[in-house]
């Protein structure tokens, strides 16, 4: 088989339009990190277990290591880079910092994206819901309790601001 041709893809990332060429075998995670210089999403396992690569694809959290770059033509993507509003961190980011919900930080971008999506759906989510919905995000450092508390605190802030 001849070498695969590169495919032209147009997509929106954090509200900006992007054009790129990619090989069909390249994952969205590889495209983001290697072609577009958006290195916020992290590669942990590269097989859908850890959630470090979580981004929103048309509003839903997905593991970007399990999406092909060619699949996102015409899609809307949000990455951790788009969470803060100019110089202001999002409440979920503030609360992770204040609550020391990270140590090495490799899992953090994925947790932030998933947590924000969860709180946008329901800022009053129960501890049980938070733990269930974040079960696709693994952290080997914190033991999760601080993460869950940070998400709860962010939810309170978000509903107070709303």
């Amino acid at each position: 088989m001849s070498a695969s041709k590169k495919v032209h893809v147009t997509t929106s990332i954090n509200g900006e339009s992007y054009d790129f060429l990619c090989e069909p075998r390249h994952s969205l995670l590889e495209v983001l990190r290697d072609n577009l210089g958006l290195t916020g999403a992290k590669e942990g396992c590269n097989n859908g277990n850890c959630g470090a690569c979580t981004v929103l694809l048309n509003g839903r959290p997905v593991d970007s290591c399990l999406v092909l770059g060619v699949e996102v033509d015409d899609a809307e993507i949000e990455t951790v880079e788009g969470i803060a509003c100019s110089n202001n961190l999002h409440p979920v980011q503030e609360c992770f910092l204040e609550g020391a919900a990270l140590q090495c930080g490799i899992c953090t971008p994925g947790f932030l994206v998933a947590s924000k999506a969860l709180l946008d759906k329901d800022p009053h989510a129960s501890e049980e819901t938070i733990r269930f919905d974040l079960s696709g995000n693994l952290c080997r450092c914190t033991g999760y309790d601080k993460i869950v508390r940070a998400v709860q605190a962010a939810g309170q802030q978000m509903s107070a601001e709303a």
Partner: peptide, 9 residues
């Protein structure tokens, strides 16, 4: 089936 991210796809 999997976690939230998997269920989206």
């Amino acid at each position: 089936i999997g976690g939230w991210q998997i269920q989206s796809r």
